[in-house]
Design a protein around this nucleic acid. Sequence first.
RNA 1: GGUCAAUUAACUCAGCUGGUAGAGUGUCUCCUUGACGUGGAGGAAGUCGGGGGUUCGAGUCCCUCAUUGACCACCA
Length: 880
Amino acid sequence: MAQNLDKTYDPSQVEERLYKKWLDQGYFHAEVDHKKEPFTIVIPPPNITGHLHMGHALDNTLQDILIRWKRMQGYNVLWQPGTDHASIATEVKIVEQMAKEGLTKEEIGREAFLDRAWDWKEKYGGKILLQLQKLGSSCDWERERFTMDEGLSKAVLEVFLRLYKEGYIYRGAKIINWCPQCQTTISDAEVEHEETKGNFWHIRYRIKDTNEYIQIATTRPETMLGDSAVAVHPDDERYQKYIGKTVILPLVNREIPIIADEYVDQEFGTGVVKITPAHDPNDFEVGLRHNLPQISVMNDDGTMNEEAGLYSGLDRYEARKAIVKDLEQQGFLVKIEDHVHNVGFHDRCHCVIEPMIKMQWFVKMEELAKPAIDALKEGQLRFVPERFGKIYLHWLENIRDWCISRQLWWGHRIPAYYCQDCNEIIVDKEKPDTCPVCGSSRLKQDEDTLDTWFSSALWPFSTLGWPEETEELKYFYPTNVLVTGYDIIFFWVVRMVFSGIEHMGEVPFKDVLIHGLVRDSQGRKMSKSLGNGVDPLEVINEYGADALRLTLVTGNAPGNDMRFYWERVEASRNFANKIWNASRFILMNIEGKEIKPVDLSELTPADRWILSKVNTLAQEVTDNMNKYELGIAVQKLHDFFWEEFCDWYIEMVKPRLYNAEDKTNKAALWTLQTVLINALKLLHPYMPFITEEIFMYIQDQEKTIMFSSWPEYRKEWDFRQEEKEIELMKQGIRNIRNLRAEMNVPPSKKATVFVISEDKEIRNIFEKGKVFFATLAYATEVKIQKDKLGIGEDAVSTVIPGASIFIPFAELVDIEKEIERLEKERERLTKEIDRVVKKLNNQGFVNKAPEAVVEGERKKQEKYENMMKQVEERLQGLKK
RNA sequence: GGUCAAUUAACUCAGCUGGUAGAGUGUCUCCUUGACGUGGAGGAAGUCGGGGGUUCGAGUCCCUCAUUGACCACCA
């Protein structure tokens, strides 16, 4: 069987088969079980319009690692999957699709449009989840939810009603962000501010009944048509005299007042601001304070409306040109300056946002935000890394009311009904038959839908059945950790937290693990327009899911961005191959043999060493994972497996395996198998496929590593002494290899190796490890002796703590060179000793440093002096 | 304008609670040893951005400067 295994690991032969097995066996499925402790993660639901990109791959790899790990630890694990209806993104897609057929939303009407959208969702909405499966994601697919499915829609209604009744949701005409492209409002979080080059137009307004002018400066001259005042700072001496006077608005000749308001910055521009309450959020506020009329001059599509008079019908930017031209012609334009300022863009379509006053639905945020702030401050909620907590707090502390209504059709329709007769607003789960006030049956539902994030804010509990008090909800809520990118802290994390607290009375998760972006090799954001995106599926096809997963966690710290390099995927693939071949080697050796448990006393020091290593590895990896230090954990796993296990232990063990006479044969096989299994288990969260595949070969084709026990530190496997012993031997071997490399001795040329030590214990150590020491040190024979009997001076030598090693290479030895080498060694040791001695002579150090550190330095001193003594001796011998 | 992060070997990045710097890739030399050349052995390579400070001791803590990046922000 093992002989039949390919020499290289081929993920394509493995992944699909294993994933199917896991699915068929229902391994991902979780049921409420009060005997076990739950561990829950809700997936950040991908948009149904989405396809898997590197961000998803990273996000879900991290979640799957945590999930698989906890599952092995014995937790009753639920990874709750699902998708988001993504109102605006999806609606745009459907509209585009219809446009190809020459149709518009309005033509086909709401119902037909929604039919299309649902069709689209059925057809494409699950695509991304299938892609997540390719990654190995162990979500409980039986529990897949969708933000617009029946249960979640119920939750949305329930929340809307509750918040409305409690006064948190209100309807009001406020200035909102309007996207003329998408023809809908958007929330503040959806506006991206970008520095944009523009102009500063200085315009003079004539003061009524005088020939005096007051000069304003604006970046948006077209909005002047909606000006309802001109404002100066109340303390501004330059303009004191004008306060209360009236100016004539150029072009339209409307009379507007000059008002005083602290909002005006005297230093900036001319110190005079035109106030356009209907098209600027600040002006809106000023307008309210001064009771100014709100004159809207624009239509929803960004063209000027009838208020704009002559300019009516023009696009806002054409109107700007025309107005500037007219102002110039009529002598009102004083000057034009270049000006860089921030412009708000819609994050979806990148169209310039137009502030407008519209009647919309809002969530009053201040009170809801408070407990969410406290949750972090009091420690019920924690960000990893912590710094993101500051961002979260800052946002919440400066939060403004959340505009939740969208002029879209795809989404949860706002459950408000307007009486056509008495204008009463009724908010209810279902459309009432009659108006409770006037009894009219002419009721009309609000046309708008809710912001997508309104439903995803409920995701951690709505997916578990809320508002029903399901067993799942009681058992799995609150979830344990949320894994997401820093880019959606405002959109999603914040809103889930206050929603969880408000409706469930408890934070929805304790930890928030934040990761960064996966960028391209040049550090640029991966984007469609740049065409620099790497398709995770392509990586999986070429290198396997394990290699991709490993690449995404290796060398990365939480919250930090990372760059994607194909070379790194190759390195990961190589590691998978290494695991494969080491396992293949072990399988070939244990094949046909029954590996029975071995008494620890039968183990050789090498066996104990590696067992002890894997034991502490389990401990350390678990510690790191507890702290979400996955990058560090995987680094340790990599190093252990490749260096310690493959390069050292397997090589140490070979002579024993190839010698049928060797009595420690069984111990070696048991150790190989045991260490391999433990390593595979520790690796499984990171590399689920290859570890499962090998596990099945070792254990049983029916078994799964997924539910095998997570390795824990075992006291009886702690062999500190043997660790030291083997490390000493390794150092000896390294030194010998060094020597040989320096002298260009090929491995085929072997020699006798003498290990000389006066220390019986050290001689004993080498005696016990002689078999592998000989092989790894390219020795024909290893002689371990107390003195240098039988060694001529024509040998090369090296020193390790407590022993000298001699290799008689008569024909190769150059005494001069040997002396030179030893003198170098002496120099190095002198430096080391000096350093240690200096440190130990420092009273401050000896008195204040922890005992263990001081003791460590003393040991070092002893070690180096011992080595120095040997070097000196050897030098003396040579120089004679 | 505010906040935060980054600055460590040629490149990309790790480095937890302060105790003489690590990995991968690349590079150089050697090796077809019966798991693996997607390999093995060995080597070269870093004044940890600059300058202060705290400390017996700082890449690690504090201050400051510089550069880069991100986020937030209503200066028209």
